[in-house]
Design a protein around this nucleic acid. Structure first.
Lengths: 119, 119
DNA sequence: TTATAATATTGTTATTCGACGATAAACGAT
DNA sequence: ATCGTTTATCGTCGAATAACAATATTATAA
């Protein structure tokens, strides 16, 4: 059977998934704010059980968003910014589209609808 | 009880979640590639059941990523680029960090680790 | 070698997600 | 009023996610 989605779409979705939890966003913000990298401070800052935080860290590691370096008995986590490049340029394309295309060039809907959408 | 996460982190996570499935990424790419907005072509292009696609479209709508305008009997979908602004600038911050901070300024781990990480 | 940190893993539970077929809803045209 | 076309909703199922406590792991220090 044919694969439904291409590599790039899968990759973008995977990175997005890694960011798709407020705890993980908070972890990243923490790593952004510190000049030094944090170990178990992350657990303290999050207000979640240690095992839960460890799992969030694992997810971020698997996605390549962070890297962990062992400094026994701690682990020192660092951002790996290149991991988000594909997702970032995908979002960039959306913004380019926003600035380029206005409602006059064949779009059938206004790009920024001033009215509430009925759902 | 105290809220665990702040508004912005929740918002970023929500937007990321909307993008966290290859089918939804593909839908967005489709809307990027078309000058005219598509109706049910999306369903045809995805290779998923109509009800499944409809659900993905609903998720994107709820997240504000797309807008649907009824043109009976179709619905015309359009990107709403402003919806991704918060997520985009979050990613931007990560990149800024990447270009600013090198390994010399107090980081305990190299930003781009040339070695495979043992897991 | 034994204790002692910090982090990882395991087992469990409740919830959410993703997919589908079947059916409903909407409305313009006949 | 009925039909035809397109999209939305419902019900169901299995799989994945998120949380926690309890336990295991690991390597340095004593």
């Amino acid at each position: 059977m044919n694969k439904l989605f291409n590599e790039q779409d899968e990759s973008i979705a995977e990175t997005a998934k890694a960011l798709a939890h407020p705890a993980r966003v908070k972890i990243i913000r923490l790593l952004l704010s510190k000049t030094s990298c944090v170990g178990g401070e992350i657990t303290a800052d999050l207000g979640l059980a240690q095992s839960t935080v460890s799992e969030h860290l694992r997810i971020l590691k698997v996605a390549g968003v962070i890297v962990g370096e062992i400094e026994h008995p701690r682990v020192c986590y660092t951002l790996k910014p290149s991991s988000i490049n594909t997702l970032a340029s995908f979002l960039e394309q959306i913004n380019i589209k926003a600035s380029t295309a206005k409602t006059d060039d064949g779009l059938c809907c206004p790009l920024e609808n001033p009215f509430e959408q009925k759902d």
